[in-house]
Simulated assay, not measured.
Amino acid sequence: MSTKVEAPAVCNSCDKVIQGRIVTALNKKWHPEHFVCNTCRKPIDGAKFHQHNNGVHCVPCFTKHHSPRCHGCGDPITDRVIQALGVSWHAHHFVCGGCKKELGGGGFMEQAGRPYCSDCYADKFATRCKGCGNPIVDKAIIALDAKWHRDCFTCMKCRNPVTDSTFSVMENQPLCGKCA
């Protein structure tokens, strides 16, 4: 008959036997008053703590000293972090520089370090078509020292698209081969 006697729990901090309540964390045992935050040195009460740089930190200290800071507001980020443009953002602060719509995890365009949705970017920064004045966000025809939408590069007389590689010019406007 064998009886297994368990060794008494020894505190990871003071190496003394623990009588009464035991804190078990990180596969070690502690007196409750010895499982402390590496920053404020107060006992960590409850089950929530963070590990950082081989130490443990209470939630308030970790948030204050180690959480990433939002580029938009400067406050610590304790929930979802968006990493964009080389900095961290709260999801609700990563917004279009034009319409202020949240950009979330979707695509965006950058101009001078600010994010923009595709519509605002096109409206503010894209080249404008000489024919209609609207932004060109796709392929363009470059002719007559300007850029044109394919559908806007039309003959000034018949208004049909000019599709030939050679065309005539009248008053700095294209003319198709038939109207020239």
Rank of each mutant, 00 (worst) to 15 (best):
109 M>W: 05
143 A>I: 03
104 G>M: 04
174 P>N: 07
72 G>P: 03
19 Q>V: 11
76 P>W: 06
118 S>D: 15
64 K>Y: 04
10 V>F: 06
63 T>V: 13
153 F>E: 00
27 N>T: 08
58 C>T: 01
168 S>R: 14
157 K>C: 02
98 G>T: 01
19 Q>A: 10
43 P>R: 09
62 F>K: 01
54 N>E: 14
179 C>M: 09
116 Y>T: 01
45 D>E: 13
108 F>P: 00
27 N>L: 09
1 M>A: 12
60 P>D: 06
109 M>Q: 11
75 D>C: 04
2 S>D: 14
79 D>R: 10
31 H>D: 13
134 N>D: 15
133 G>N: 08
84 A>V: 02
45 D>Q: 12
119 D>G: 01
172 N>F: 04
160 N>Q: 14
179 C>P: 10
124 K>F: 15
141 I>D: 00
51 Q>C: 13
128 R>P: 02
170 M>P: 00
10 V>N: 04
135 P>S: 10
96 C>A: 08
175 L>D: 07
1 M>G: 15
117 C>T: 01
17 V>T: 13
3 T>V: 12
45 D>S: 10
63 T>N: 11
16 K>M: 11
7 A>Q: 13
163 T>R: 14
25 A>N: 10
28 K>D: 11
4 K>A: 07
110 E>V: 07
140 A>M: 12
22 I>T: 13
53 N>H: 11
70 C>L: 08
136 I>T: 02
150 R>A: 14
160 N>M: 14
10 V>M: 09
13 S>Y: 10
153 F>I: 01
91 A>Y: 01
28 K>F: 07
36 V>M: 07
46 G>S: 06
123 D>L: 13
47 A>P: 03
68 P>Q: 05
179 C>I: 10
70 C>H: 03
74 G>M: 02
84 A>C: 07
54 N>H: 11
62 F>M: 02
159 R>I: 03
120 C>T: 07
167 F>W: 08
140 A>G: 05
155 C>D: 05
47 A>F: 10
16 K>G: 03
128 R>W: 05
87 V>Y: 03
54 N>K: 12
66 H>L: 11
109 M>K: 13
16 K>S: 09
90 H>I: 00
62 F>P: 00
165 S>N: 13
123 D>F: 08
47 A>D: 14
33 E>Q: 14
172 N>D: 13
154 T>I: 15
44 I>N: 00
51 Q>W: 03
131 G>I: 02
2 S>C: 06
153 F>T: 00
22 I>R: 12
119 D>C: 03
75 D>V: 03
147 K>D: 09
119 D>R: 11
151 D>T: 09
109 M>R: 11
17 V>Q: 12
161 P>T: 09
144 L>N: 03
5 V>W: 07
159 R>G: 01
